[in-house]
Design a binder for these strands. Structure first.
Lengths: 204, 204
DNA sequence: TGTAGCATGTAAGCCGTTACATGATTGA
DNA sequence: TCAATCATGTAACGGCTTACATGCTACA
């Protein structure tokens, strides 16, 4: 990364730029975490609280964000605001670095790859659980999309939310098809499935 | 993780179980890396060589794989074979741990989220490059799928490869739609979008 | 009164990468 | 002979998580 900042740093910087949520200026680490949980997790990750504070410290050290000690509230908190340098750093990142190809870590597909070693019932459960997870995630993301409405300022976040929804829909269709396929072929040859009875003893 | 092994460890253990590629018994770290590059990267990650050797050392230490010093070839190499305990550990992992929900790190979606800050031309490039990447990845995965043929032993890997292909197809459709949408709305309001360098108003 | 949420951090440690180091074999 | 590929590792370090530590505020 040109400036020595990770993608996560830039993502947080981006959240900070699109502040507009409270009447206060800037955001606290806590608020940042909430925002990350709300949206960022669907396309990137939601860093741990400790990581947020660490990044904020780093960004602060580079002068990309500016801490404002806010005593006005019921309790003193530290808010962070993007500086001009921070805004410039984000622009540079957006315009002069290539976007890497997405990385997908898919434990369900990984297990299905070894489907031969999995008990048919466990396999069915695996896909069923995943379908449930998909429904839940989709619902959460739908709430995000609804919240965004349809005004010009939120057009891009809304677009990305819809992208995510489409992705979940596609994934749901594919998994349903696979589950059906497996169920069918299981019924057809319950006699010769090459599955060894799983020894559930502890290794070593 | 029950046994203290990472998902990556189990993934490598899985590759080792479905050995069947050379006449030799077991696989070298190098071969394992090739296999990971070939398939694993689509659903999980392909660890660095150094990481492969580290994992092999760890698995070896736990008695889950067994090193075989092979002097028969032109040059001595160390092959690794899954032990009975290793096979049991994989079974345990597959049957008694829940599969987490997939994690997607999507730099393109992340940038699109901040689309407002991106120059329209750079934005178009971003999506164009991604579409190229999708085509390339799809072609690589198609080759994997073709290689797998349609016999009983490769049914699961083939299923997962097709899943991946469907995913790339869905993604391609979505991105094309988004790119069109952006192009259309850009043409519609070229009046209120700065034509040259985007000096979007600084917050504050 | 006590629990959930707000709020901020430090420390230990894992997972994984890049860089470094080494050397043999194959084929243009 | 020179580059690419095969082959195996160690060292330094970054990014991120969990666990730990602290304390205030709202509310049931």
């Amino acid at each position: 990364m040109g400036s020595g900042l990770s993608t996560t740093s830039h993502a947080l910087l981006g959240l900070l730029v699109f502040d507009r949520q409270t009447s206060e200026e800037g955001m606290t680490g806590y608020e940042l975490k909430q925002r990350a949980d709300y949206t960022l997790r669907f396309y990137w990750v939601s860093p741990a609280m400790s990581q947020i504070y660490t990044e904020l410290g780093r960004l602060s050290g580079q002068g990309l964000v500016e801490p404002i000690d806010d005593e006005s509230g019921k309790r003193p908190t530290r808010r962070y605001r993007v500086t001009v340098a921070g805004r410039a750093a984000l622009d540079t990142w957006l315009h002069s670095t290539e976007a890497e190809f997405p990385v997908l870590k898919h434990p369900v597909a990984l297990r299905l790859l070894m489907g031969q070693l999995i008990d048919p019932r466990a396999l069915a459960d695996l896909l069923l659980n995943y379908q449930t997870g998909l429904r839940e995630h989709r619902a959460d993301l739908q709430a995000v999309r609804d919240m965004l409405g349809s005004n010009r300022e939120t057009a891009f976040p809304a677009m990305v939310a819809e992208w995510g929804l489409d992705y979940y829909d596609a994934e749901t269709r594919i998994v349903r098809r696979i589950a059906d396929e497996i169920a069918r072929s299981w019924i057809q040859h319950t006699d010769d499935v090459p599955h060894r009875r799983p020894r559930v003893d502890t290794p070593t």
